[in-house]
Design a protein around this nucleic acid. Structure first.
Length: 496
RNA sequence: GGCGCGGUACCCAAGUGGUAAGGGAGAGGUCUGCAAAACCUUUAUGCGGGAGUUCGAUUCUCCCCCGCGCCUCCA
């Protein structure tokens, strides 16, 4: 099957063919930076990351633009509440967002652009819309006249003919000719940030920034646009209306939307205590790579029910893969090659590639690799694995990792460098008094040297057949979050 | 009410008109000083419910039930 995606616009899985051979122009809706992003947001961002990684894997050169909404009602309200100027306030959250992205191994798009840096571009497009009769002014604000755009509703499949106006009454309703019209430009309100422009003093509406920035960097027609399913209406519908009215050309060709993450079967909510940021989960001791694994493991078109049990399962699954990787790199095998294994390795690569081509079926891509791992482990246990097979397996896993980016166990280093571990000085469970006094057995605080010292101590005890002491050391380390495994090649340790 | 996404074993989850991938968890076993890891065996005559089409449906059609989302704040 050729590379195919479910396109919201057509409602079908379609073969993907970019406008320009070998090149993909892609726009993704990024965060509104009024607070830390939550794991529901990251579900979408992980999906977008898998998307861009797979496109790269398939040899496309990518130009990926992600916006940051840094001027809207929420950013203004929160910055004012914090007593910090808007620009400074949003910059803080952009930095926090980038730090979270790095923890989750999300690649940085070629361009990350801020709405507030594009005011003149926005004004120009609004002026075009006014000239073409799609926009009108009212009390200092400008609105898009939805009725003028006959294709309105083609993305969301909403039928507006004869539909009564929704129960929710917008504050701007009486300024608009029609309740469905939406703001392109909002006139300045006292005390709010505003720009002096030919349109008057004010700020952009929400939707226009994406139309403007996407077209500025990607052209009037580009390949892929994506975001969470809640953006289909009104945000993306309005982007299409504005952009296509301004240019007379199709806007984005493929629209990809990820389904939402829910928590314990319900929408995340602060009042229900089910609202989690990445930091919240890290503070609870979960690894970012396990979180990425969980978010990536469910195909993007399926709602993902987040539970802590599910997160623990993800950790276990990931450990299985990492354990195999460890065996692969640390065990010695007899010389030669096992042709059957090499064949299986190559087949596995074809399988996970085909799975991803099929609308990014990550679950199937995972299954292919687990099947290979099981068979390789079996071969290793039976002595049928050969030194020459290593390369095939390493290659398959490396290729797989280009997409999933979860195998490298560098969470601890990244968390420490990012200052995340400061929140993790949790008191260790009861331990031997003299060790506890040293203060070195707190969770996540043992250095590699300290761990290796303890392991040497235990090795000595084992040689002397003092298993009680050896087991005690192992238990202490375990309580400090360090797991030991005695392998043929010596004792291996890892951070739980 | 309209539109959309789902409902597969204890949990997560793939998938197909021809008889259910994979992961986690549990149980038994092998290995190990013991663990851990790994391996082997085992856990859905069943795929929300009902009717229909068919030689045959979990997979197609219709109706119904349930969960989630959207219907101008929302990834």
């Amino acid at each position: 099957m050729p590379l195919s995606f479910f396109n919201t616009l057509s409602g079908k899985v379609e073969e993907f063919k970019p406008l320009e051979a070998g090149r993909v122009r892609m726009y993704t809706c990024g965060p509104t930076v009024y607070d830390y992003a939550h794991i529901g947001n990251f579900r979408t961002f992980v999906f977008q990351d898998i998307l861009r990684r797979h496109l790269k894997y398939r040899g496309y050169q990518i130009l990926h633009v992600m916006n940051v909404t840094d001027v809207d009602d929420k950013t203004i309200a929160n910055s004012q509440a914090a007593g910090v100027p808007l620009r400074e306030f949003t910059t803080r959250y952009i930095q926090a967002f980038q730090a979270d992205r790095e923890l989750l191994n999300l690649e940085t798009p070629e361009l990350v652009v801020r709405a507030s840096d594009h005011i003149p571009d926005i004004v120009k497009v609004i002026q075009t819309l006014i000239e073409k009769g799609y926009a009108y002014a009212s009390e200092g604000s400008y609105y898009f006249r939805v009725q003028k755009f006959s294709d309105y509703g083609k993305l969301s499949k909403l039928d507006f003919s004869g539909m009564r106006v929704g129960a929710r009454v917008d504050a701007d309703k009486y300024e608009k000719d029609s309740a469905r019209d939406f703001a392109l430009w909002k006139t300045a309100k006292p005390g709010e940030p505003a720009w002096d422009t030919p349109l008057g003093r004010g700020r952009p509406g929400w939707h226009i920034e994406c139309s403007v920035m996407a077209m500025k960097y990607l052209g009037e027609t580009f390949d892929i646009h994506s975001g969470g399913s809640d953006l289909i209406f009104p945000h993306h519908e309005n982007e299409i209306a504005q952009s296509e009215s301004a240019t007379g050309k199709p806007f984005a060709r493929y629209w990809l939307h990820s389904e939402h993450l829910i928590v314990n079967g319900e929408k995340m909510s602060k009042s229900a205590g089910s609202f989690y940021t990445l930091r919240d989960l890290v503070a609870k001791g979960y690894k970012p790579t396990a979180i990425r694994y969980l978010l990536a493991s469910v195909p993007f078109r399926k709602p993902l029910n987040f539970t802590f049990d599910g997160l623990r399962q993800a950790e276990q699954s990931l450990d299985r893969l990492r354990n195999f990787l460890y065996r692969l790199s640390h065990e010695q095998f007899s010389p030669g090659e096992n042709p059957q294994l090499a064949k299986h390795a190559n087949e596995t690569r074809a399988e996970f590639e085909a799975a991803l081509d099929d609308n990014l079926n990550t679950a199937e891509a995972l299954a292919a690799v687990f099947n290979l791992v099981r068979d390789a482990n079996t071969a290793m246990d039976r002595g049928e694995f050969r030194e020459g097979d290593k390369a095939f397996f390493a290659n398959v896993l490396e290729r797989w990792e280009e997409i999933f980016a979860v195998l490298k166990d560098d969470d601890y280093d990244k968390l420490r460098k990012g200052g995340y571990l400061q929140e993790r000085h949790v008191a260790a469970p009861p331990l031997e008094p003299e060790r506890n006094r040293e203060g070195i057995l707190q969770l996540g605080t043992l250095s590699d040297e300290q761990i290796e010292d303890s392991i040497r101590e235990r090795e000595q005890a084992r040689r002397q057949a003092d298993y009680a002491r050896a087991d005690r050391i192992r238990q202490e380390l375990l309580e400090a979050g360090i797991l030991l495994e005695d392998t043929k090649g010596g004792t291996r340790w890892k951070r739980k």
